[in-house]
Computed example of a mutant assay.
Amino acid sequence: MSEDFYEQIFNKQQRLEAVPSNKEITRWALQVIHLLYPEQTGKVFADVAALKAEFTLLENELHHMMEVTKGCGDCDNKQRADRFFKGLPELFRVLNTDIQAIFTGDPAAQSEFEVVRTYPGFLAISLYRLAHSLYIDHVPLIPRILTEYAHSKTGIDIHPAAEIGEYFYIDHGTGIVIGESAVIGNHVKLYQGITLGALSVDKSMANTKRHPTVEDHVVIYSGATILGGETIIGNNSLIGGNVWLTKSVPPYSRVYHTPSHRTINSDEV
């Protein structure tokens, strides 16, 4: 390889030297979640002052990460970090509605502690909500790193720009994809293998509504695929497993996939 190639790679490394790794960014986010939910780690603090100091340390870390990830030049990253942490009480309240939805909706859940400690759906939702809070304040890069980490850990892929209401329940979750412009209402329940995607993928469609809207009190069963920015699933609807939808359905709909199959009796074998 030529010296010019080595020089090109070296110069790129110098430009990236100050940018924290994905591991450092996700560590920061997980620490925020662990402070909100000590059930995940069992870590306790000696007093309120020590807890407050930990939050302050994480706010300073966020400010630093914003500074070095090359966001907009005229943004006040100190103010943005302050806004994020001032918004934590509301984020915590909404996350508690998600815990309640999972606990009351899953017969297998023995306690809210179990939901917080073990459920991959709650981990994915937690990181999404944290990432979304940063995303809507125009923080670059960090939100996507967080939701991609959740994707790698849980198999649940939620774009940080998606808009998701309260009491959100993901059951099992593996293989769920929720696209950038998807809108999900309150009290929505999703099973594994669901796609809320775009009808087509083209760069010219960036910044358009490409993904579906799911209204309040909707249940979508495993394997369903719902596509298109104009597709609306009306409130209180039930979408059965393996359904393929590219058109809207009105409120209180019941949509089922009807497979064709034949059972072979033992005397035919």
Rank of each mutant, 00 (worst) to 15 (best):
I170E: 08
V188A: 10
G175P: 00
I158Y: 07
N186F: 03
H187Y: 15
T147I: 06
E180P: 10
H159R: 04
I145L: 09
A162L: 00
V177P: 06
I176D: 05
G155K: 07
H187S: 15
I142R: 06
T174Y: 09
S152P: 07
I164E: 14
N186H: 11
G155S: 03
P140W: 09
I142C: 11
Y191K: 13
P140G: 08
K189I: 08
Y169C: 14
L190A: 08
L146Q: 06
D171I: 02
G165M: 10
P140N: 01
Y149C: 01
G185S: 03
D157L: 00
P140H: 03
A162F: 01
G185W: 15
S181L: 08
T147V: 12
I170H: 11
F168E: 10
L141P: 13
Y191L: 11
I145Y: 07
I176W: 03
I178D: 12
D157M: 04
Y169T: 01
P160R: 11
S152D: 10
L190N: 14
F168R: 07
G179W: 07
I158L: 08
Y149A: 06
G165S: 12
H159Y: 04
T174F: 04
T147A: 02
L141T: 15
D157F: 00
G179E: 02
H187G: 09
I178A: 09
G173K: 00
I176H: 05
K153P: 04
A161W: 10
T174R: 06
T147S: 03
V177A: 06
H172N: 01
V183C: 12
T147F: 05
E148S: 13
P143A: 05
H159F: 00
K153Q: 15
G185L: 11
G173M: 01
V177E: 12
K189P: 09
V188Y: 03
L190Y: 13
K189D: 12
E148G: 10
F168Q: 12
T154E: 02
E166A: 15
A161R: 02
D157K: 03
T154Y: 11
L190E: 04
D157H: 02
T154A: 14
P140A: 08
F168H: 14
T174V: 12
L141A: 15
K153A: 14
D157Y: 00
E148K: 09
E166G: 07
H172C: 01
I142H: 01
H187M: 13
V139W: 00
I170L: 11
T147G: 06
G175L: 08
P143R: 08
H187V: 14
L141K: 12
G165R: 06
K153T: 02
L190I: 14
I156P: 09
H187A: 11
N186Q: 06
I164S: 11
I158C: 03
G179Q: 05
V188I: 07
E166M: 09
A182D: 13
S152W: 03
N186M: 05
Y167R: 11
H159T: 01
A150H: 06
S181Y: 04
D171L: 10
Y169I: 00
L146R: 08
Y169L: 05
A182P: 04
R144L: 13
P140S: 05
G175R: 09
